[in-house]
Write a protein that binds this DNA or RNA. Structure first.
Lengths: 110, 110
DNA sequence: TTTCTATTTCTATTATTCTAGAAACATGCA
DNA sequence: TGCATGTTTCTAGAATAATAGAAATAGAAA
């Protein structure tokens, strides 16, 4: 992942409204949510919601597919993990002794 | 971590120049870097660099301490991990069957 | 106490992003 | 065809962020 793409994704998430939307999609998982379903959860005029969804899509964080009349939005999990990886990689210059300062205390794996 | 703080941190990182600075600090580890050392690596007028460092500090991502004449900037790793945790938590609503879609392929631990 | 280096604050300008009403477009169904 | 529902595009004003020169402050050292 290149810095310009990471910055674009972080910038997209750096807005409370969009972060809220994105988290709804992360929790929803690969099944995704329709624009209408998101609209019911976030209080926002349609045009504004559409604008923010477009930002998230443009940043590569969210993908869309049409299901009949409605558009289903889905978080792109590969991209999410790439972003998280970008943020934390080479922490402490990969010095093992230093690592405890960088790494999370514990991480529950699947 | 509250959404408003996460959004502030993400927004601070959502600028190519600041992300570059932040990554330098993450790689540098707890020892940190002086403003001058950062200035040498990022091509940016002093006033601009100072502005961006203040943004990172304000977002809680970076802390400062004085060492004589110079100010040493350090990434706040606890905050970094909290942010990463915020972004990924409750992925797929914690459905175990769904988890492979959410979680990174592999993660090298310490 | 003058001077040097390191860094910030002040200030103003320019650039970008956000917001949301109104109109348009897409799909499904009677 | 005509109408309902879902969603986007257009538009333009309001709000916020970025940039960087110049002046100011902080500490060290002569």
């Amino acid at each position: 992942m290149q810095i310009i793409h990471a910055a674009a994704a972080l910038s997209a998430l750096g807005h409370e409204g969009r972060l809220h939307i994105y988290r709804l999609l992360v929790v929803a998982g690969p099944r995704g949510l329709t624009v209408g379903a998101i609209a019911k959860r976030v209080k926002m005029p349609g045009a504004t919601l559409s604008f923010h969804l477009a930002q998230l899509q443009h940043a590569g964080l969210v993908t869309v597919r049409r299901e009949g009349q409605r558009l289903v939005q889905t978080a792109d999990f590969a991209r999410m993990n790439a972003l998280v990886g970008y943020l934390t990689e080479n922490c402490c210059g990969n010095d093992k002794a230093c690592a405890p300062a960088c790494l999370p205390k514990k991480r529950k794996a699947s």
